[in-house]
Design a protein around this nucleic acid. Structure first.
Length: 158
DNA sequence: GCCAACGTTGGC
DNA sequence: GCCAACGTTGGC
């Protein structure tokens, strides 16, 4: 979500660490955030995400669920090449290469938190009650957060 | 355009 | 591995 003063956008982006973790990103320094196959998420990436935006890296479906670090959106969203790769995890044979359906974005490692800001802690935090990832049934892998929410989570990480 | 069936997500 | 919740698909 873009801050009205600065235009700076803030996000939470989920990944299962068994698939791709904060340590993988730390090692790679930069990666292509691919595999998004949800229209809402695609539209946010296409319409709202900007280079320089900051994103919290969230580990889902693991022993320690929660926010584990920070990354930066490097550039604008562009067609996700894995949709055309039959050997990828999420090929989409119905997507037309002349008008690609799915987008991805490049992200760069910023920091890994010394400890996980657990889902439990997020739930307990008063200022974070509006977080979309805390809402029942939320399944979006990318969700906007406000500057305040972002900074609140950063403080919880130390 | 409705809606049942199905597949996926993600916390536990 | 269970299951609630949600998105997508496809028959009508």
């Amino acid at each position: 979500m873009a801050d009205t003063q600065t235009g700076q956008g803030y996000w939470i982006m989920k990944s299962e660490p068994s698939c791709y973790s904060i340590d993988d990103l730390k090692r790679d320094k930069k990666t292509m955030w691919d595999g998004v196959r949800n229209y809402q998420v695609r539209n946010m990436m296409r319409d709202q995400m900007q280079a320089g935006d900051l994103a919290l890296f969230y580990h889902s479906s693991t022993k320690e669920v929660g926010v584990v670090g920070v990354m930066e959106i490097v550039g604008k969203a562009y067609p996700d090449p894995t949709q055309f790769d039959p050997k990828s995890d999420h090929p989409d044979p119905t997507s037309d290469p002349k008008s690609p359906r799915w987008l991805c974005v490049d992200v760069a490692f910023k920091q890994k938190f010394p400890q996980v800001v657990s889902l439990e802690l997020l739930k307990e935090s008063k200022p974070l009650q509006q977080l979309q990832i805390l809402k029942r049934g939320n399944r979006l892998s990318v969700t906007p957060v406000t500057k305040n929410e972002f900074e609140c989570i950063l403080k919880m990480a130390v």
